[in-house]
Simulated scan of single mutants.
Amino acid sequence: MPRLIDASLVNIRLALIIMALSVLLGTGLTILRAAKLPVVNEVIAVVISFVRGTPLLIQIFIAYYVLPSVGLDMRPEVAGVAAIAFNSMIFVSETLRGGLATIDPGQIEASTALGLPPRAIWYKVVLPQLFRRVIPVLINEATIVVKGTALLSVITVVEVLRTAQQISAASYRPFETLLGAALIFLVMNLVISLVGKFAEARYAVSRA
Rank of each mutant, 00 (worst) to 15 (best):
G98N: 10
T143Q: 15
R133W: 00
A110D: 08
P105R: 09
E109C: 08
L183S: 12
S8G: 07
G148P: 04
G71N: 06
V92N: 08
I144D: 03
I90M: 09
A208V: 13
A181C: 09
S22R: 01
V43K: 03
S153H: 00
L9V: 10
A181Y: 01
E159T: 06
S88W: 05
L194P: 01
R173E: 14
P2N: 13
S171L: 10
L161D: 01
F131E: 01
L152G: 04
L151W: 00
V47F: 14
W122Q: 08
V157A: 03
L130F: 05
A85W: 05
N140P: 06
R202V: 10
I121L: 10
Y172T: 05
V23H: 07
M1C: 10
L57P: 00
Y65Q: 08
L29Y: 06
P136L: 10
D6E: 13
L151G: 01
N87E: 10
V66H: 01
Q165L: 05
E77M: 13
A45G: 12
K147A: 05
G106V: 08
I121K: 11
S49C: 08
R119I: 14
P2K: 15
T102N: 09
A101T: 14
S22V: 07
R162N: 07
M19T: 12
V51P: 03
Y64I: 01
L186P: 02
R97T: 13
R3E: 13
A142W: 02
V46T: 12
I135W: 03
Q166A: 12
R207N: 11
E159I: 03
N41H: 05
K124N: 09
V126D: 02
I5M: 13
N189H: 05
R52E: 12
L190Y: 03
L127E: 04
F185E: 02
L116M: 15
L190H: 01
A208N: 09
I60M: 04
F86N: 01
T177Y: 00
L57I: 08
R3V: 10
L9D: 04
V78K: 06
I60G: 02
V23P: 01
L152I: 07
A204K: 15
E94K: 11
M1G: 11
I90Q: 02
V51S: 09
P38G: 11
E77Q: 13
A120D: 14
V125M: 06
S171Y: 06
V187Y: 00
V40G: 08
M19G: 07
T30K: 07
P105G: 08
R173K: 14
G180W: 10
P136W: 07
I121P: 03
G106S: 12
T149D: 02
S22F: 04
V46L: 15
Y123E: 11
L4P: 02
M188V: 07
Q107Y: 08
V43Y: 06
V137D: 13
I62R: 00
V146N: 03
I139L: 06
V191Q: 04
I58R: 00
V81I: 15
L16W: 04
V134M: 00
S193H: 02
S22E: 07
M188N: 02
R97S: 14
T156S: 12
L161F: 08
V70R: 08
T163V: 05
L116I: 05
S8M: 11
V137K: 12
I48E: 11
L151D: 00
Q165R: 13
T30A: 13
A35L: 15
G180I: 02
A79Y: 03
S111L: 06
P117I: 11
F131D: 06
A182M: 11
